[in-house]
Simulated scan of single mutants.
Amino acid sequence: MSIKVKIKIDGEYQIFDYDGDLNIPVTTLLERLDYPIEYSCSCLQGLCGACAMVINSQPKLACKTFVNDEIMVKEYGIITIEPLSKFPLVKDLKVDRSILHDVMIDCEQWLESDARVSDDLNFDYEMSMCLMCGCCTEACPNYGFDDFVGTQVAVSASKLISQESDSQHSKSIKRKYKDNFYPHCLKTLACEDVCPMKIPTQRAISKMNRKSVWRIWQLLSGDR
């Protein structure tokens, strides 16, 4: 089947023709085009998050997104592919997402002591599936404004806070969350809607709000 492939390259859209099997992931489609398209990839199995891009207006992992599924919901036999817009563009569909790792360091997302066994191992397992792919930040209407650090911090912190036995570091994680995440999140649910790993991000946010914000309010109000 012949389709049009519309790709945003250096700020402008270019249209390419593709004639062949559509039961392929977008990563394979990009490799089969006559024009070389640069993009990030590593595992090609949906495990690293490197190939995140915007496909038909939605942030997705290109290796897990099949062309035939996208063509079925798009008119005129065309698929549109763009780089993530919330990060500096490197080339073609490749972006620099190092800021995601930088804010994890700024928000002290690590353990200072031996990990405690969590009371909810299933929750911790779900949170540990975050790929740091950037899909949630791409979909978030608040990311890119003020000092909002992104949902990956809430996801990580919600797991660490149950495992950290160093009370001072635990307090620091909560304080960083309260200062850099809580005031900026409007809970649009966009992050959860687009997460390729189906992480229940709202559960993570609710847990951290309860641990770092509402608990402080209870103590100040005398409600113990």
Results as ranks from 00 to 15, higher is better:
Met197Arg: 13
Asp119Val: 10
Asn56Val: 09
Ala204Trp: 00
Val90Thr: 15
Trp110Thr: 04
Cys195Asp: 04
Arg32His: 10
Lys207Arg: 14
Asp124Gly: 10
Lys171Ala: 12
Pro36Phe: 09
Leu186Arg: 14
Gln163Ile: 05
Arg116Ser: 14
Lys8Ala: 11
Ser85Ala: 12
Asp119Lys: 12
Asp10Leu: 07
Val103Cys: 05
Asp124Leu: 10
Leu44Lys: 14
Asp69Ser: 07
Glu38Trp: 12
Lys198Leu: 06
Ser118Phe: 06
Leu111Glu: 00
Glu31Val: 08
Met104Phe: 05
Arg97Pro: 08
Leu100Pro: 04
Glu38Lys: 15
Asp69Val: 04
Gly144Leu: 12
Ile216Gly: 02
Thr201Pro: 00
Ser172Ala: 11
Val155Gly: 06
Lys207Gln: 12
Leu89Ile: 11
Ser2Pro: 14
Leu100Cys: 03
Phe145Asn: 15
Glu31Phe: 11
Lys60Met: 11
Tyr177Ser: 06
Ile78Thr: 15
Gly144Cys: 11
Leu100Thr: 04
Phe16Asp: 02
Lys64Ala: 06
Lys94His: 13
Asn180Pro: 06
Leu84Tyr: 14
Val54Cys: 08
Cys63Lys: 01
Lys171Phe: 07
Leu33Trp: 12
Ala190Ile: 08
Pro36Trp: 08
Ser113Ile: 03
Val153Lys: 00
Tyr76Ser: 13
Cys140Ile: 03
Gly144Val: 08
Cys195Ala: 01
Met53Pro: 04
Arg116Lys: 15
Thr151Val: 12
Phe123Pro: 00
Asp166Glu: 07
Gly49Thr: 02
Tyr35Phe: 15
Ile81Phe: 08
Val153Ile: 15
Asp166Ile: 09
Ala50Arg: 11
Gly134Lys: 02
Ser113Ala: 15
Arg215Val: 08
Tyr13Trp: 10
Glu126Ile: 00
Asp119Cys: 09
Thr188Trp: 05
Thr151Ala: 13
Glu75Gly: 00
Gly144Glu: 10
Ser221Tyr: 08
Ser98His: 10
Ile78Lys: 11
Ala52His: 04
Lys86Leu: 09
Gln109Glu: 05
Ser40Gly: 15
Thr27Cys: 14
Met104Ala: 13
Ser128His: 00
Met132Arg: 09
Val95His: 08
Ile99Trp: 09
Pro196Phe: 01
Lys8Tyr: 03
Val213Trp: 12
Glu70Trp: 03
Val26Arg: 05
Ala115Met: 07
Ile105Thr: 12
Ala157Phe: 00
Arg175Met: 13
Val149Leu: 11
Val5Leu: 06
Gln152Asp: 01
Ile78Asp: 03
Gln218Gly: 08
Leu22Gln: 02
Ile205Tyr: 06
Gly49Gln: 04
Ile99Phe: 13
Asp193Gly: 01
Ala190Leu: 05
Met104Leu: 14
